[in-house]
């Protein structure tokens, strides 16, 4: 046996099962997971900004210098900016049309991953520089008048952690993420080629 018509008979012998409608369970696709991560990440950063703002306005902080409040404002702006960026990634992913022809659909994913790749290049250093500039300004008043040894210890620990987080942990995560994105882009290209070539 086993010319193609026989294979078709075999295929059609198996009757599809009728399953209940999947209405309540959460979607399990990678896309749904990423969308949830974006939404949660964006919301958490937005709330962090609100929390810092509430502290600045609600608590009697009694800072003497305007630039200390400005530094807090800058941290809030950075949190909200980052929150907006993450939310825009969520929207970009939502825009991907699942009912487009497969070749076009794969291209849309490829464009999305290219966008993420380019964001990674500028966003991480910018976020690092801005946040630490804000923290630096904030520390001016906080540290003034304190024993120099205490200042040196606090700043030393802070700087060591920040530099380690950026140059060791951050770079490692970024390298991994870029490799992951590059692999996905290559796989998508390979799939696109399958639909385009014969």
């Amino acid at each position: 046996m086993s010319d193609f018509d026989s294979l078709k008979n075999i295929w059609q012998q198996e009757k599809p099962e009728a399953k209940p409608i999947p209405i309540s369970a959460q979607a399990k696709s990678e896309r749904s997971k990423m969308q949830r991560q974006f939404l949660v990440g964006s919301l958490l950063l937005f709330l962090t900004g609100i929390f810092i703002g509430a502290m600045a306005l609600g608590l009697d902080l009694n800072f003497q210098q305007w630039y200390t409040y400005a530094a807090m404002g800058l941290v809030i702006a950075i949190c909200w900016g980052q929150s907006f960026l993450i939310f825009s990634n969520y929207l970009s992913m939502r825009k991907i049309d699942e009912s487009a022809a497969p070749g076009e659909h794969l291209k849309q994913w490829e464009r999305y991953y290219h966008l993420r790749q380019s964001q990674n290049r500028w966003n991480t250093p910018l976020y690092f520089i801005m946040l630490n500039a804000a923290m630096g300004i904030y520390f001016i008043e906080i540290m003034s008048g304190r024993p120099w040894m205490n200042v040196a210890i606090v700043l030393g620990i802070y700087l060591a952690w920040v530099l380690y987080a950026y140059f060791v942990l951050g770079k490692k995560v970024l390298r991994k993420e870029n490799q992951r994105l590059q692999t996905i882009i290559q796989e998508l290209k390979a799939l696109e080629n399958q639909f385009e070539k014969e």
Partner: peptide, 17 residues
Amino acid sequence: TWIYRIAVNTCLVNLRK
């Protein structure tokens, strides 16, 4: 056609790896 397209896209994107 519309639903099968969505199904095909879902399969292709979710099971690359």
